[in-house]
Design a binder for these strands. Sequence first.
RNA 1: GGGGCCGUGGGGUAGCUUGGUCCAUCCUUCCGGCUUUGGGAGCCGGAAACCCCGGUUCAAAUCCGGGCGGCCCCA
Length: 467
Amino acid sequence: MEHKKEDFSEWYNEVVESAGLVDKRYPVKGMHIWRPYGWKIMHNIDTYFREIFTDYSHEEVNFPLLVPETEFKKEAEHIRGFEDEVFWVTHGGLDELDIKLLLRPTSETAMYPMFSLWIRSHADLPLKIFQIVNVFRYETKQTRTFIRMREVHFFEAHTAHRTYEEAEKQIKEDIEIWKKIAKKLALPYKIVKKAEWDKFPGAIYSLGVETIMPSGRTLQIATFHQYGQNFSKPYDIKYLKEDGEHEYVHQTTFGMSERLLGAIVGIHGDDRGLIIPPEIAPIQVVIVPIVTKKKKEVLEESKKIRDELKKSGIKVHLDDRDNYTPGYKFYDWELRGVPLRLELGPRDMEKGQVVLVRRDSREKISVSREEYIGKIKTVLSDIQDNLYNRAKEKMEQKIVNVESLDEINNVEGVAAVPWCGSEECGHEIEDRTERKIIGSPIEEGDVKKCVICGKETGKVAFVAKPY
RNA sequence: GGGGCCGUGGGGUAGCUUGGUCCAUCCUUCCGGCUUUGGGAGCCGGAAACCCCGGUUCAAAUCCGGGCGGCCCCA
């Protein structure tokens, strides 16, 4: 295993494959195979999405992958934002298509023609739907597992509302949902408002959820967009108000992707491999029996333990492979990031105990057979909290307040600098630091002087190198 | 967008500069067998590779051209 600190990029590339998440050998750039273990983790994340969005009155749908060129071209800014990175389907068999089809880079242009048919009156609103599908973008830059792909496992929620204020409320609700997701995935984050020139193509404004990877680069792991009526007008999505007048709806979206898994890998992993937060781990406890001459007894006891744990709702796996030694298994499961290991050997059998080993701290805990289930539950929840807290602490250290341009390049992470908010000053900050403004915190702080023009401002720019 | 590096069994590599010593090295993996098991066990036997197309040459993993693919750094 590469050393994470010395060469994060190499470490990351190696661990995603060796831990059994993906197989990168598929012969198309930016597309990989999800292997069973990786797919299970992603699936667990998706399952949680389904759960929580359903709790917040969203319904799951599934739209076609192909979008006709004619629908795609209805919103001018949206086209400009995506046209250079869409995959086109130009032929059916040997015949050229009259109307070309594109692979969705995101689903606005697939969904909104249907919204126009679905929404008739105020009673149809709000409309809240989501889907979990793959989207395609023709990335020309270098691709990276989970982080920059040409085929992306994508979550998108779309809502339509009567008024701008109702759409604003939706975004507040989205942030509430996000906070729960962040806890579930143990991911620390900052929410920022995107600069005017960096918002989603077609949006009035965009909020980004940013986290910081160990390399110091920032990673956008979720977005919320306020569309206002920018899409409802070209797509003719109108509703009949109580007073009999027609009005265009106000729309929002909430997007996330497999980047979340990239963040989990990068932020929690170590030189031994992955560390999967217990809440989304396919295997929360792995039992490694130490079988010697007392083979039978230890194995039988292990099975009993497995069944007990399963009954109490813990995701457990018994590693009864007899062609590997315990040492090999320890390394193997650590690589895969199983949060808790349970060892049972002849010595433990005599004492009526089991040994627990935490993946996050490697702490060994001996616990009696009477108390072990309760203890496991406590420890799993403690690991979840510990992962979140220590990641949060590390991330906060990477955000540094600075008040001059020169200081920015000494920051390994995010430099928070006073900025008047103008596009001219913004671009100058980016050009002179060779970094990007990834956005600004929503709440303004103390009044300081813009690092470029010196104007007084409470606004801050987060300046960093994004992925 | 610019620059650099690279492509050899399933994975990681040696060989390439200076063509022949290569029916290709080592580690790992996989298969069969015996023996083992509290932090990557051992022995025996076996399987498995020069990215593609073209060129130079008596001779190409090695040199040249093109293609495809991958990686890294910078903007």
